[in-house]
Design a protein around this nucleic acid. Structure first.
Lengths: 203, 203
DNA sequence: TGTACATCAGTGAACGCGCGTTCACTGATGTAC
DNA sequence: TGTACATCAGTGAACGCGCGTTCACTGATGTAC
């Protein structure tokens, strides 16, 4: 680790991003201040300006990193699952929901569109790559729905994406708990779109 | 209108809420400051304290009002639609999405759980009432899925809710635009869960 | 119809704080010769 | 192997701002008698 007591940090950019991830976990999205991130990285609060000209740049880079981890979560679940169409959809959804549970504030940041620079190519690429995990598993859904045209594929992907995203977001923001259940009830399972469309009586 | 140049406002509480709605539309959720709301209502910035002890109380009341309008949007669409199961689901979803399109920042506020007081009974009641619109149309979905037990009903409702909520949220935060489409493409239609589950070849 | 008075709903000044950003600076590093 | 020097990546003080909240106050209202 080159994080000695040196004047030059060595890899401050990376350290700032890691500090950002930690602070997001500890203090939530409203606790993610430039000064706090700098302090966590062990550096004066003006130092980040050399790497991120504005707070917005740091948040954008952080969101890109989040999308990468998000994609990785889906990829991992898929790699572990059987290669059948139905199990691949379910695995991607499991990865989606797991990421949201484990990184609620990273997920919030990814969708705080007003604070991110969506013109940033790195962010766009990371978001697109994450989304590709869903595209890949949605092909068989389009087939099952009988429309494999580009529009049909997009519709199938949107079906999968919407339902898992909606579930994850409702869960994240406490809506499932707030209006549905007695406090002790278990959190409901996500909707099983894969079983619904692809299942042949096995749901 | 009792909004004369009087020392006592007459109905400041209501005026503050209306000012809040306006400011949310104009400046977004980050522009919703106590001082701005007070100024918009034509009152000194310390005056709101008599009606809302903290900013949090005002935001909570505003979110409750938002949930009421949200429920109304779904109710209106349903009243206008045929009384068939499939069209009632679609109508509720139309209301859901219309509200989000017309009131993006009200919707964001409703889900900014960290800034709201979910212990507030008025807020809880408003959220539950909004949710009831979806419960009501989801009964036939549970039947079609062959499970009308309480758990089955909850699962059916969650299916409908997740997919429309996910679509609306992705739309709201620009995700559909950011990663899917050429800039000129039309925004994709929401997934048709009703047609999928209830449709008999008519999708 | 008056008057006294408690209560309510405003005012406006001030407090204290934390924020992102700027700026002149300084120490460290790497390269040319 | 030295030396000069441009460049880079930090420091720390300061700026300017807007925020939510507090506080002593004052004007208006409603009620008791």
């Amino acid at each position: 680790m080159p994080t000695k007591d040196r004047y030059h940090h060595g890899n401050l950019r990376q350290a700032l991003l890691e500090a950002g991830v930690e602070l997001l976990k500890e203090r939530g999205i409203d606790g993610l201040k430039l000064r706090a991130v700098a302090a966590r990285a062990g550096v004066s609060h003006a130092a980040p300006a050399h790497h991120f000209p504005h707070l917005r740049s740091l948040l954008t880079a952080l969101a890109a990193l989040a999308f990468e981890r998000f994609a990785a979560a889906m990829r991992e679940e898929r790699a572990r699952a059987p290669a059948t169409a139905i199990e691949q959809v379910r695995a991607a959804e499991r990865g989606y929901v797991r990421f949201v549970r484990e990184n609620p504030d990273l997920f919030r940041l990814m969708f705080q569109s007003s604070r991110l620079d969506w013109g940033d190519e790195v962010l766009k690429a990371a978001a697109t790559a994450a989304r590709r995990q869903l595209s890949e598993v949605s092909g068989p859904v389009a087939e099952a729905l009988g429309d494999v045209s580009p529009a049909g594929r997009r519709a199938a992907e949107l079906l999968v994406w919407s339902s898992v995203h909606g579930y994850a977001h409702l869960l994240l923001e406490g809506q499932l708990q707030a209006t549905m259940r007695d406090p002790g009830d278990p959190v409901p399972e996500p909707p099983d779109i894969a079983g619904l469309v692809l299942g042949r009586g096995d749901r």
